[in-house]
Design a protein around this nucleic acid. Structure first.
Lengths: 152, 152
DNA sequence: ATGGATGCAAATGATTTGCATGAAG
DNA sequence: CTTCATGCAAATCATTTGCATCCAT
């Protein structure tokens, strides 16, 4: 499923508004449910990549099944609402596509703290790959290190 | 386990020689077995990231258990002989650290062909992160696209 | 009303582990 | 001969799926 976000009028906010979210779901005939809105809120409240079980824990005031979280996150990923991030962990993490601009992460190897890295020197590289004949190029980039607090 | 490759005299080849391999294993009191040497050869013969089961298939003239392949690859990764690569697939892939210089990949989304991307504009970025207080910084970078043969 | 979303339980599939045996040093 | 690597089978664990029920439209 292709991202459709670009076909939807976007607000000036850096976050998805709930209205925008509703538009995206409607455009794909996806129902707006309490659980889906809850997951959106959790992602909005945590500007950090979350694992499936972290999202699930945040939902546990209401009784939501893990399978449902998997299904919702899969849907959100297909709709371009969420980015899947691999930190070479055992778990995938998911982050709201809350910035309209691309960014990356640096993860502390010890405390697992995540900070954003805003940059796009990679655009040139993608152009280079375009010349090699590739189309629809995307990339994923993660940094790993030990943060100042963890370095004793 | 830290990479120890830097403590070992390196040949001028771009590939690990078998001697070098033996030195690395010896330095860590790891035994040199037929299966381990076979896995090394398979990785040397395929300068493309391989999945565990691809490695296993290459071994199936001799009867090697999948669990053994997992164990060997885990060891090789810890020894710095092999890099683990995530292509947002369902499978992890492993590639011999055959170049002494860092490189990345571009993967065709359709035929899964892998090409190397030689570059290191990222060194500047790592310096930047160093100023932020991070140490022991590494990164992982993958590109995804559709190659010219797959674009009809 | 009707089809899609969810809960529940069972299945799947990659990866790991315990244990007995065989091979490397 | 002693320790560690391997084969085998079972366990583990994240993720997926089938089905009945519930809820959004």
């Amino acid at each position: 499923m292709k991202q459709i976000k670009n076909n939807i009028p976007l607000s000036d906010e850096t976050d998805f508004s709930e209205d925008e979210f509703r538009l995206i779901l409607n455009a794909r005939s996806q129902r707006i449910t309490v659980t889906r809105i809850d997951v959106l809120s959790i992602l909005k409240a945590n500007h950090n990549p979350l694992t499936i079980s972290e999202i699930h824990e945040n939902l546990k005031n209401r009784k939501t099944d893990l399978a449902t979280v998997y299904r919702i996150i899969k849907l959100f990923t297909e709709l371009g609402i969420v980015n899947e991030i691999d930190f070479k962990d055992e778990f995938k993490r998911y982050e709201l596509v809350y910035d309209r601009h691309h960014h990356h992460h640096i993860v502390c190897r010890k405390c697992k703290k995540v900070e954003n890295v805003e940059t796009c020197i990679l655009e040139d590289l993608e152009k280079l790959l375009g010349k090699k004949g590739y189309t629809e190029i995307t990339h994923s980039l993660e940094f790993f290190g030990v943060c100042s607090e963890c370095r004793h």
